[in-house]
Design a protein around this nucleic acid. Structure first.
Length: 576
DNA sequence: GCCGTTTTCGGCCCGACTGTTTTCAGTCG
């Protein structure tokens, strides 16, 4: 298995943890974390860049030293420096940092005073009431550690965006009804529309005497009040999700919203720009002048906060410090795709296979969304569990669609198929049948465990078929459930570009496949994207919004996406 | 360990809450 970018970033983050525990310079620690992020954010393989003779020290936050360390990892899979570090502090200690309440200082104390090296050691020491005796610890901290140990075991995963939505919307409605509450906004990674969220950040403006904090911690779904103050409180809900509430004055609303939307990396980078302009930026506003004579220059809305540091407004989805700040300075941010740009759905199933609605119901639902076309794309015969269509049943469906089309003037029902890519790279239905369709989506639903080379070859071979139009859910991952299959995405994209193949951004909230990095990579390579819900019911068509979120995170504009086109123009993309 | 329109040294974002304290360190976001 070649060294992936995530392998390198994992090693750097691990080093940062261990350095921190061993009391190293905090800025040196940060340097490793910054570098880990840079590596993670590269859409191209770092090892490949190295092989191509590129100078990695040109990348942000990577200097001569870390470039050499990356080269060592690429060559040996590990770092001599890490081995040496682990002589000083056991590697497992970094796991203790996952426990809330435990940072590097306390972990160091636990290690040096009690010899604790693992979560098991920690549990035993807490149960034996040894921890409360340490300096800087106490009974309460010990009890919190025990509670945390249980939680970390139960759930370590981030919450999918759509699941978080189900939880947070009722909570916001509850907050909105409280006396004196004005604005209620969800900030954080939720507002940036990340595919998963770690916790939720809610921002509230209210009258001075509002009881919103007490009501928040008293919400019926709360299982634990983690912290409660005048302006900030944290709770844990039954689902395990942590929610932070911040109360800010209206005059600071924009600054606070900006601050708590993040990402942290984005904020840090923008605040550096502010410092250079002799401005101070925090959640209360942007300020000019000395401490005793401060003047607020921005704060009530986000636009003026951006303007105060010379930036165009950056949509939340882009705030990851992946080049959006430079683009905002130069005035060349992309105009991101919007939900209203979508003119039709290109991936839907009916109860002919594993869908739950009839052909007619799906058409009605698509029409009520204001679409002008809907493609029916059933599974093919290889997917037996989904009652995939064979040649005969597909031909029958084609007839049904043609008949129904005559009943709906102005609305186009496209004839498609989600045909399986078989193990040898052939397609699951003969070419002469595929020729009768408007287009095909071709997907991998089996043999996920081939090597990256074999899987890549398999898909490229399938793409050689002139009837191959869209590659369905290209990586095969299911968020929190199944990793993407090993694949050389760069090669796949190159192959798609050469052959005029379109890539699907599957909008299902469990898939969101392509991910944001891959969307951006495709855009940069000039590959077109289809945002498809893969709807198995009429309601499933509404998942389009999650696809739009992901597309926006991937810097996509209307022009990058084919189902923003009118049907006549759309069909041209399927001519190879 | 990185970085440079304060450029090879000396900086490196900023504030709230908790628990263990007697004025603040540690942690978190």
């Amino acid at each position: 298995m070649p060294i992936q970018n995530t392998d390198i970033s994992r090693i750097f983050n691990h080093i940062a943890d261990l350095l921190e525990i061993s009391g190293a310079n905090a800025f040196r620690v940060r340097a490793y974390r910054n570098a880990a992020r840079t590596v993670e954010d590269q859409s191209r393989s770092i090892v490949k860049m190295l092989e191509d003779g590129e100078d990695l020290a040109e990348l942000p936050d990577i200097g001569k030293d870390l470039a050499e360390k990356i080269a060592e990892i690429a060559e040996t899979g590990t770092l001599e420096m890490l081995d040496e570090l682990e002589q000083k502090v056991p590697g497992e200690l970094s796991k203790l940092l996952e426990i809330q309440q435990l940072g590097p200082k306390r972990v160091a104390t636990l290690y040096h005073e009690l010899g604790i090296e693992s979560l098991e050691d920690l549990k035993k020491a807490a149960e034996d009431e040894k921890i409360r005796e340490l300096e800087g610890f106490g009974k309460k901290t010990e009890q919190k550690i025990l509670k945390e140990l249980k939680r970390v075991q139960d759930s370590a995963k981030r919450t999918k965006l759509a699941d978080a939505e189900q939880i947070v919307i009722p909570l916001c409605e509850y907050l909105q009804k409280i006396d004196g509450v004005k604005q209620v906004t969800i900030a954080g990674s939720y507002r940036r529309r990340r595919e998963t969220v770690g916790d939720l950040d809610i921002l509230v403006t209210c009258k001075k005497d509002s009881t919103v904090m007490e009501r928040f911690t008293g919400y019926e779904d709360v299982t634990e009040v983690i912290a409660q103050g005048k302006t900030k409180s944290s709770i844990r809900l039954r689902s395990g999700l942590q929610v932070d509430l911040r109360v800010v004055p209206e005059v600071s609303y924009g600054a606070a919203l900006y601050y708590f939307t993040g990402s942290k990396a984005h904020n840090v980078a923008v605040r550096k720009i502010a410092v250079k302009k002799n401005l101070k930026m925090n959640e209360y506003g942007v300020f000019k002048g000395k401490e005793d004579d401060e003047e607020r220059v921005a704060g009530s809305d986000e636009e003026e906060v951006f303007a105060s540091v010379g930036l165009a407004f950056i949509p939340p989805e882009l705030r990851e410090n992946r080049g959006e700040i430079e683009a905002a300075q130069e005035g060349c941010l992309p105009v991101l795709i919007d939900r209203s740009d979508i003119r039709g759905e290109l991936h839907a199933h009916t109860h002919a296979t594993d869908g739950r609605a009839s052909l007619q119901e799906m058409v009605e639902a698509a029409r009520s969304l204001g679409y002008s076309y809907l493609a029916i794309t059933e599974h093919s015969q290889a997917v037996t569990v989904a009652k995939g269509l064979n040649r005969k049943r597909l031909e029958k469906q084609i007839e049904e669609i043609e008949k129904l089309t005559n009943e709906y003037g102005g609305f186009r029902i496209l004839k498609g198929i989600e045909v399986d890519i078989l193990k040898d790279g052939s397609l699951d239905l003969p070419d002469e049948v595929l020729a009768k369709l408007d287009f095909t989506i071709c997907s991998v639903h089996s043999h996920f465990n081939l090597s990256a080379d074999k899987q890549t070859e398999r898909i490229l071979r399938a793409m050689d078929n002139p009837y191959f139009n869209i590659l369905g859910h290209p990586s095969g991952r299911l968020i929190n459930e199944r990793e993407a299959y090993p694949l050389n995405m760069e090669k796949i994209m190159k192959g798609a570009k050469e052959r005029g193949v379109i890539l699907e951004l599957n909008a299902h909230p469990d898939r969101l496949d392509l991910n944001d990095h891959h969307c951006r990579m495709a855009k940069e390579m000039g590959i077109k994207i289809a945002i498809n819900t893969d709807a198995h019911s009429t309601d499933g068509l509404n998942n389009m919004k999650y696809g739009i979120y992901q597309a926006r995170r991937g810097w996509l504009s209307k022009d990058d996406v084919i189902n923003t086109r009118r049907v006549a123009e759309l069909l041209k993309f399927f001519k190879r």
